[in-house]
Structures are given as structure tokens and as C-alpha cells.
Nucleic acid binder design. Sequence first.
DNA 1: TAAGGTACTATAAAAAATGTAAGTAATGAG
DNA 2: CTCATTACTTACATTTTTTATAGTACCTTA
Lengths: 120, 120
Amino acid sequence: MSKIKETSTNFANKQALADECPEAYAANIIGGQWALVICSWLFNGKLRFGELRKLLPNITERMLTLQLRKLEEHKIVKRTVYAEVPPRVEYELTAIGYELKPIIKQLEEWGAKHKAQNIN
Amino acid sequence: MSKIKETSTNFANKQALADECPEAYAANIIGGQWALVICSWLFNGKLRFGELRKLLPNITERMLTLQLRKLEEHKIVKRTVYAEVPPRVEYELTAIGYELKPIIKQLEEWGAKHKAQNIN
DNA sequence: TAAGGTACTATAAAAAATGTAAGTAATGAG
DNA sequence: CTCATTACTTACATTTTTTATAGTACCTTA
């Protein structure tokens, strides 16, 4: 992913915030550029790497990999590799990942409402 | 805030995502390092700049300003300046900003649960 | 005259996130 | 042998976000 500098002020601040504020902790986990959208697609069921890539037309393979790895690391998604050639890898939400569904749905509703309000 | 390069791929991607996915749109608005926590404090009522700064011990004045400006720009918070000396500026949530409360609360609950689960 | 308090701004630098382009392994099809 | 397929990885470049540090204007009080 690129290593985070554990000596940086930024790292210390994130740590401290995440310790005290579960909402900041959560934001760190699902806060990537594509994380929420990836989760949204996965709410409908498991998907292969290539399927996700097609669903997210502008994402690069690198970013897709990075985001999936981060999500996996935080136990939001489960990765299953099938020993085939060409390879097949499937991603699906874990139980705790799936629990994001109502939250993301509400966030969608809020976003849609906000967007409608701020059209000039 | 620093200008965003409207010619960058990153900008284009964010735009496209925000257009299609209200949840990505929302994440762009409340996605800064401190935004959620600022909102959390403001759910309890209006606060002055200096009060917020004290509540967020590690934030720099610059970051606080930037985040508040962004929130203000998106109509999440309302800024009121009193023509006094020394100056007094109060921040409070708008109606749509206040509507984030249940969402952030759920995110907090999710975060707390996730954190508890992932203690080794 | 000087100091103090408040809410900032300016500038630079560091760190983090994202994007670009190329390459890899394994195997089956032709 | 060569090519295609899939899910990556790597090295590097660019962009965005965050931090650091030092100011500013204003009026009041001492």
C-alpha cells in the first residue's frame, strides 16, 4: 500500500482520534476513494476481481488491489483463491462488513438529498 | 484549501463517482480527517472556533479552519461572525448537517463493534 | 505605550493517496 | 513454441491532504 510512517504526526493523530472516536476509527477503515462503492457492489453477492474492475470503469488494477487488500486486512471482505489457471479470486463481505449495509444506504439517501438541495 | 487540479485523473474519477454514487458524494463531503469529529461535537450545540480547538487537542488552527470552511461550503455548518473585539465566531450545524447525526451514531456503533471484534 | 486575546492567513514542507506503465506466473489452446 | 487469460506486483510519478511555523488585524485593558 505504501508504508505509513509511524513516526509522523499524521499517524499519531489518526491513532489518537481512532482511539477516542469510533466514528473516526470507522472512517479510517472505509475511507478510501473506492471502498464504499466496492462494498456497495458486494452487498449483492460475491464478485471476482475482474468483475469488480468492470463495474468500476475508471479504477486501476493497482487501486482495486490496494483497496481490496485494505478491506481484507480489516476483515470487511473475505478473499477466496481458487487454484485454477487462469486464476480465479472471489471477494465477498464478512458478517461485520455486511453490517455496513444499512449505514451506507442511509449515507446514500443523505447524499442524494444533499445533492438535490444544493443544485443551483 | 489548496486548489484541486481539475485536469487530474483523480479529480475526474471523484466527479464521476460522486455523480453516480451518492455514497461516494457524501464521503467526499464528510471525508476529511477531522470532519466527522467536528460534526460530532456540533451535534451538542454551537461552538466557537477556540472551543473546537480545545476539544480537538492535536488539530492545527489551519486544519480546523480548512475543515470548517469545507463544511461551510457544503452547507453542513453555518458560520456566524460577531463584530466584536476580540472576534467571536460561532459554528453550528445546518438542518441537513444535523441529519447526519443518526448516520454518524450508527457508524460509531459499528466502529465500536468492529474494534471489539478485532482485538487479539 | 505595550501586552493580550481571538480567529484567522500565508508559505513551505512532509506525508499520504492515487495514477501510469510495465511486467509476472501459471497453464491450456492452437 | 507462442499466445491468451487472470489476478495480480513493482517502480515511479503526480496529486492531494496534512502538518509546521510564523505572521495579521482589531480593540481593550493595564
